[in-house]
């Protein structure tokens, strides 16, 4: 029994690290723009498809790291493009317009992919995975790789946000967006950069997801991407560390729900957890309530 739980915990860490990577993108965008980028989950899905195309369509077999970097670059640029085309014209508009636009962009991406590729596709094996056994517990090298890459990206992001000028500018924008331009900070460029980085992480998560669960379809955006959104909300959307915490928490809850109940209850439990947290802690575990002025 204890082995079973320990084994499931390894799976939970794998799933949780993917959730956390996607959730970071949601949280970063919310931090600087105070808007929910619903299209992010579909960028995650496109990450998996971009990896599939890069791995199968090119005449030469690219090394793993190159594919990862290319996927991140492509999806990152796409995220920045969406911001430029669809979100920037609405910067001053009512908040509801921005949410609807984001929802619409997400559905456009998702259904375009569905129309172009109606049937699920299978990810080729990019990485020669071996199974290791430690005193009864099994872990594949692929799992170690996925968890390692996720943690590496998270540490890199933390460094970017805490130690660089760009990160300082991002934090400044989320602190007070009106004063920031007065300090000579190019707000538009920083926002574009935020979308680039956030979407890039989402794309990387899509690729890692494709490696871990090789069947990919246009539906994984809703299936996995929106779960990551729940993770971001549970952790307190806008908070970077909250996103990571929420990702691992949700991964744990889901894997345990599947391990101990029927797997069809997975969505029900995840969304009920979201509802419960929002009722009792409306701004998430690590989030701050905004000051409302009259």
């Amino acid at each position: 029994m204890l082995y079973y739980i320990a084994q499931q915990t390894i799976n939970a860490i794998q799933l949780g690290s993917i959730y956390a990577l996607i959730a970071l993108g949601y949280s970063m965008v919310y931090g600087v723009l105070v808007m929910i980028n619903f299209a992010h989950s579909d960028l995650f899905m496109l990450g998996a498809f971009a990896c599939l195309l890069l791995a199968t369509m090119l005449p030469v077999q690219l090394p793993f790291v190159v594919i990862l970097l290319l996927v991140m670059a492509i999806i990152g640029l796409l995220g920045a493009l969406i911001e430029r085309v669809a979100y920037r014209p609405l910067r001053g508009a009512p908040r509801v317009s921005a949410i609807i636009t984001a929802l619409g962009c997400g559905l456009v991406i998702q259904n375009t992919t569905l129309s172009l590729s109606p049937y699920p596709k299978y990810m080729p094996e990019l990485f020669n995975s071996r199974t290791l056994t430690f005193s009864g517990l099994t872990i594949t090298t692929l799992q170690i790789l996925i968890i390692g890459i996720s943690f590496g990206l998270m540490v890199a992001l933390d460094f970017l946000i805490r130690k660089t000028r760009y990160g300082m500018a991002m934090r400044a924008i989320s602190f007070d967006v009106r004063t920031v331009p007065l300090m000579g900070i190019p707000v538009n460029r920083i926002i574009s950069l935020t979308f680039l980085v956030g979407a890039g992480l989402g794309g990387a998560a899509g690729m890692l997801y494709g490696l871990a669960y090789p069947q990919i379809s246009s539906g994984i955006g809703i299936l996995i991407g929106w779960k990551a959104f729940i993770a971001a909300v549970i952790g307190g959307i806008g908070s970077i560390r909250g996103a990571v915490l929420g990702g691992f928490l949700l991964g744990l809850v889901e894997v345990m729900a599947v391990a101990f109940t029927d797997s069809s209850y997975r969505d029900l439990i995840a969304y009920s957890l979201l509802l419960l947290i929002l009722v009792f802690k409306p701004y998430g575990l690590l989030g701050q309530a905004p000051n409302q002025k009259v």
Binding site: T101, G104, V108, S115
Partner: peptide, 13 residues
């Protein structure tokens, strides 16, 4: 299902 959300986005803008 691509056209409908696209209309929504264009409307919002």
């Amino acid at each position: 299902m691509v056209v409908m959300p696209l209309i929504l986005v264009l409307l919002m803008i």
